[in-house]
């Protein structure tokens, strides 16, 4: 966590944190869309932080740019694609489902399936053989224990 803090806080010299008042759009519906999209875009110079949360300069520039695109009439998909065209899929916090990410998206399901089947098989198991009969020594000890009163 220390390192996360360092990354989050130290990349920008100023204290410009996340969305600044001056950046916001007058139209609340448009602004809400902008917030939504910027939450899904990675701040490129940070760890797993979105540009909406980041205080980095580049994140601020992209926030402003994004709002300009929306004002110019871009759809959410087009505005996001605008950045993907420039920075690649890396800019998306949610990786797209494609050949290379099949294992990522279906890995957890696969683990659950395999684990579930394994647990199912385990629970269906039957005793292979009855427990071995007690040895003479064990029988003697049982008899002795039964004789003793509870300590």
């Amino acid at each position: 966590m220390i390192r996360v803090l360092l990354v989050l806080l130290l990349l920008a010299p100023g204290l410009a944190r996340a969305v600044e008042p001056g950046e916001r759009l007058a139209d609340p519906a448009l602004e809400a869309r902008a917030r939504d999209i910027s939450r899904s875009l990675r701040c490129l110079v940070c760890q797993n932080e979105s540009i909406d949360e980041s205080n980095a300069d580049l994140a601020r520039d992209i926030r402003v740019l994004l709002r300009e695109r929306l004002v110019a009439g871009d759809t959410d998909v087009a505005a996001r694609q605008f950045l993907v065209d420039r920075y690649g899929d890396f800019v998306l916090l949610k990786p797209p489902l494609e050949g290379a990410t099949l294992l990522l998206w279906f890995g957890p399901v696969l683990v659950l399936l395999v684990g579930g089947v394994a647990v199912g098989l385990y629970l269906r198991r039957r005793p292979v053989a009855p427990p071995p009969p007690l040895t003479a020594a064990e029988r003697a000890r049982v008899a002795q224990l039964l004789k003793e009163p509870e300590a």
Binding site: L92, K94, P95, W105
Partner: peptide
């Protein structure tokens, strides 16, 4: 296992020469 996959997958893709991706909170 899910957290493990999500944390290491970008590194894995990179090591096998795949595209650079980010795995963030939506995943």
């Amino acid at each position: 296992a899910t957290v493990f996959i999500g944390t290491l997958y970008p590194l894995f893709l990179d090591a096998v020469g795949g595209p650079k991706i980010s795995v963030g909170f939506p995943f």
